[in-house]
Simulated scan of single mutants.
Amino acid sequence: MHGEYKVPGGKLVVVDLDVVDNKITNFRLAGDFFLEPDEALEAINAAVNGLPANSDAATYAAAVRAALPEGATLLGFSPEGVAVAIRRSLAHASEWKDYDWKIIHSKAVSPAMHLALDEVLTTEVGEGLRQPTLRIWEWDESAVVIGSFQSLKNEVDPEGAAKFGFDVVRRISGGGAMMMEKGSVITYSLYVPAELVQGMSFADSYAYLDEWVILTLKSLGIDASYQPLNDITSPKGKIGGAAQKRFGNGGVLHHVTMSYDMDGEVMVQVLRIGREKLSDKGITSAAKRVDPLKSQTGLSRAEIIERMKQTFTELYGATPDDITDSEYKAAEALVESKFTTPEWIARVP
C-alpha cells in the first residue's frame, strides 16, 4: 500500500507498506522533509512495523515519537504527519493529481442559489456525475449566511439586516455566521470525492484542502497561515473561515469566505456579536475582527481571484468549466423547496 500526505505549510510525507494478518510490515518512510540524525529514519520504520493496521492516527504518531533518538530534528513534517500518511495508505486515499479538476467562475446568482448549487454539485461529484470542481462565487446581493446548526435569533439582528439590505440564508454546513457584503468578500467552494481526504481527521482535512489558497496569499505578500479548526489568518488578523459538509454518497463540500473589504461597524449591527465572543478572540473592537485582503495586497478583488485560479491550475492542472442547464434547474428547484423556506431558514429558531 502507498500513501502520501503533503503537510500543510511543510513537506511531502510518503509511506509504503504491506499488511499481513492485520499487522503492518515492510514499512518504508520517504519524502522531501529534513530529518536528523540519519538513523532516525530506520528507527521510525522499525517502530511502525508490527503495529495493528486498524490503529488510529494517535497510536501511529505516538509510536513514531517514542522511537525518535534523543535530540532528533524533524523539519517540514511531524509524527502526526507520518500517521496521516499511514492512514491514507491503508484507506487507499487518492491525491489531487488523480483527478481532472474543473474551475467554475460564472455569472452572479442569489445567495440562496449559491447554497443550492453547493448541494447539487457536491451530490454530483459524490455520484461520479461531475469531476471534482473549484467554484468561485459571484453575486450582486448582500447576505448573512448562518451555519446549519446556528440559532437564527441569536446570530442575526433582523432590524440591522433590513437596514443595510442583507438577506438571511442558512447553509448546509456547520460553523459560524458569515456577513457577505456584495463585492466585499471572496468565497469559493470545493466539491471533492471523499477519497481525497481519506485517512484524515476533520481538522487535517480543512488545512489540506485550503493549502493552495494559503500558497496564493503568500504569493501576494501576505504572511497567511491556517489556524485550527477552520480559520485562515495572518499576523494582522483573521482573513477568513472554512466550513465543510460530508455527504453520504461520498461527496465532500468544503467552502471558504475571505474578507476583501469588510465594514466592521456594519457587521456588528447586522450580526449579534457579543462581547464574550470578541473577548475570547482577544479583540477589543469588532471592526478589527476580520482583516480585509484589500489592505494587505492593494489589489482589486478580481486580481486576487485571478491569482487564485492561476495557483490552483498550476498545482493541479485544472481547466475552465461552467454550470450546466440541468444543474441550474436542479438548484432552482432546491431554492424554492428548501433554501428560501421559513422551515429551513428558521429550523433552529
Rank of each mutant, 00 (worst) to 15 (best):
K238R: 14
A62E: 13
A302C: 05
I44N: 03
I104E: 13
D167G: 09
V270Y: 06
I305D: 12
M178L: 09
N230T: 10
Q244S: 13
S142N: 08
V213P: 00
A330V: 00
R87M: 07
A143W: 02
G317F: 00
G147L: 07
P320M: 07
I136K: 05
A108C: 10
N45D: 13
A243C: 10
R65I: 00
I186E: 04
M308A: 09
P132D: 08
G126H: 02
F33L: 06
D157M: 00
G176L: 02
R272T: 05
G175C: 10
L209K: 10
I239V: 11
W139D: 08
S110T: 14
I222E: 05
L121M: 15
T187I: 02
L299G: 08
F33K: 04
T284R: 09
D223I: 09
L190E: 00
A286I: 01
I232S: 02
A40F: 08
L115W: 07
G199E: 00
S89N: 05
I305Y: 09
L115E: 07
Y188D: 01
Y226P: 04
K6H: 11
K294P: 02
T340W: 04
A91F: 00
T187F: 06
G264K: 14
L35H: 07
S205M: 06
L215D: 11
V192E: 07
G9Y: 10
V197K: 08
A116I: 04
L334R: 13
D231K: 06
A243S: 14
S148R: 15
A112D: 08
L253Q: 11
V19S: 09
V48W: 14
Y328G: 04
V144N: 01
Y99A: 01
S142T: 13
V252I: 14
T324A: 13
Q150Y: 09
K153Q: 14
I214M: 07
V256S: 06
S201P: 06
E80L: 13
D167K: 15
G274R: 14
E181V: 03
A194W: 00
F77H: 02
Q227V: 05
L134D: 01
L68P: 04
E303P: 00
A224R: 08
M267H: 12
A72P: 03
Y208R: 08
A63Y: 07
V7C: 10
L334V: 02
N230Q: 10
I283K: 15
E303F: 02
K294S: 12
E138R: 15
A57C: 06
H105A: 02
